[in-house]
């Protein structure tokens, strides 16, 4: 008898050590962390899909869900774009190049690549919502032949808060992606593109709803307006996908924090088709 303390493999809660390769400031309070696995193995074995997330673990500060920003087509490092906003992310920002912390994952159901392939792709991002969408965007660009037109609509609140600025600027040189950028306000009058909310961008371009899939991620207020816009343009409900944010504490469908009606954001999502969540009031 007596309490049996044992060590066991395959514990879903056991985190894996990673270290910071580069720590790239983006905008105020936002950084892109490039990570490598400590024990020398590659991200290939990690085998994540665009739209999935990890649990970042810093002992003493807890764990928090962070979406993966890099695509599985670029496996040198795993990239996460983080806003300094809570206890864990504040601690993460204290860590420099070469520092070690822990992660678990990859978790969740990402973007439905097999459904999206062969179709036109409309990505609608607001603010930090670009972080998870970027994994899909770069994936599609790396496998450009597998997708029809790619259109990116990205809105931020002002010109100072544009994430991945240089990457977005680099699209100016490409003919195979359409990009439309907006800022809510431009008090200094420096913004050369659209000023207004992101839905305003829909009036700037022609879309063909029949063969386009719309995928979005942004602040809570954005979803309802963008979905309304898409439906009014004639998008079928099952051509609309959303990536949702919740307090996904465990990441494996056990702790209950991220439940949305009968679904768990961490295992059934974070990417949902609109019909899956349409009737769940608390979803968006």
């Amino acid at each position: 008898m007596g309490v049996n303390k044992q060590l066991k493999e395959e514990n879903i809660y056991k985190p894996l050590p990673v270290s910071i390769v580069r720590n790239l400031p983006q905008i105020k309070d936002h950084r892109l962390f490039q990570l490598k696995i400590e024990n020398g193995t590659t991200w290939e074995t990690f085998s994540h899909q665009p739209g999935q997330f990890i649990e970042v673990s810093i002992f003493g500060k807890g764990e928090a869900p962070i979406s993966i920003s890099s695509p599985p087509t670029r496996l040198d490092t795993l990239e996460i774009c983080v806003r300094k906003v809570g206890i864990l992310t504040n601690a993460l920002f204290e860590l420099g190049k070469g520092s070690t912390f822990y992660i678990r994952g990859p978790y969740g159901r990402g973007f439905p690549i097999d459904i999206l392939k062969g179709h036109k792709l409309l990505l609608v991002a607001g603010g930090l919502g670009l972080a998870p969408l970027r994994s899909l965007l770069l994936y599609a660009l790396d496998k450009r032949g597998e997708f029809d037109d790619i259109i990116l609509m990205y809105g931020t609140n002002n010109p100072d808060n544009v994430l991945f600025k240089y990457e977005l600027l680099s699209f100016f040189d490409r003919k195979d992606i359409k990009y439309l950028y907006s800022v809510d306000k431009d008090e200094e009058g420096i913004w050369k593109q659209y000023v207004g909310v992101v839905t305003g961008l829909f009036d700037q371009t022609e879309l063909s709803p029949d063969d386009t899939y719309a995928v979005m991620c942004g602040p809570p207020v954005m979803y309802r307006f963008v979905i309304q816009k898409l439906l009014s343009l004639g998008f079928a409900k099952d051509h609309i996908y959303v990536s949702l944010e919740r307090m996904m504490k465990c990441g494996v469908g056990k702790c209950g924090h991220c439940a949305i009606g009968d679904k768990y954001c961490c295992t059934d999502g974070p990417v949902f088709s609109y019909p899956e969540i349409e009737s769940i009031k608390e979803a968006i």
Partner: peptide, 29 residues
């Protein structure tokens, strides 16, 4: 919920009962 009891990088990670009735249960960072 899962929380850490830590001092200088050592200590324990603990899980304890939580409930959806608490305001912080779904609150994001």
């Amino acid at each position: 919920n899962v929380y850490d009891l830590a001092r200088d990088g050592s200590g324990m990670r603990v899980r304890g009962w939580d409930t959806c009735l608490y305001g912080g249960f779904t609150r994001e960072a």
